[in-house]
């Protein structure tokens, strides 16, 4: 079982924070297939939050095929998000570090590096979609 936390100053809606926390738990392997999510009533109580917000988050996860409700029992994980890419993280990080030092040598400051990365990342994601 996981426990939810809400950051009221993050600017992210409560419903989205719940969705993100489940997804993160699935990615980190904290939740796996067959695990039960806290009941809507328990989350509403624990966070003093509108139960409809919890329902909405769970429905969203259901739509993504990650969880399924069992009537009268609760909501259960049906799929995990852990993957086999962990092995590739090391080499990719080395590449990225090399690229970062190159960017610094070229005179880019933190803000410019971040902006360049984000615009390139977004452009690449859009190309993938198109």
């Amino acid at each position: 079982m996981i426990e939810f936390h809400l950051d009221s100053r993050s600017g992210v809606s409560a419903y989205l924070q719940l969705v993100q926390q489940v997804r993160r738990a699935l990615r980190l392997g904290l939740l796996s297939e067959g695990d039960q999510l806290p009941t809507v009533k328990d989350v509403a109580r624990q966070l003093a939050i509108n139960p409809n917000t919890v329902l909405k988050a769970y429905r969203d996860l259901e739509r993504d095929g990650l969880v399924a409700p069992r009537p009268g029992v609760g909501t259960f994980v049906t799929r995990t998000l852990t993957d086999n890419t962990l092995a590739a993280h090391g080499p990719l990080r080395t590449d990225l570090q090399r690229w970062l030092s190159k960017a610094r040598r070229a005179g880019l400051d933190d803000e410019s590096i971040e902006a360049l990365f984000m615009t390139t990342f977004r452009a690449a994601s859009e190309e993938d979609i198109a």
């Binding site: 809507v40 009533k41 509403a44 109580r45 624990q46 966070l47 003093a48 939050i49 139960p51």
Partner: peptide, 10 residues
């Protein structure tokens, strides 16, 4: 508020 939200859920 916790008690109230629980009542709403129930």
């Amino acid at each position: 508020m916790q008690d109230l939200m629980e009542a709403v859920a129930e």
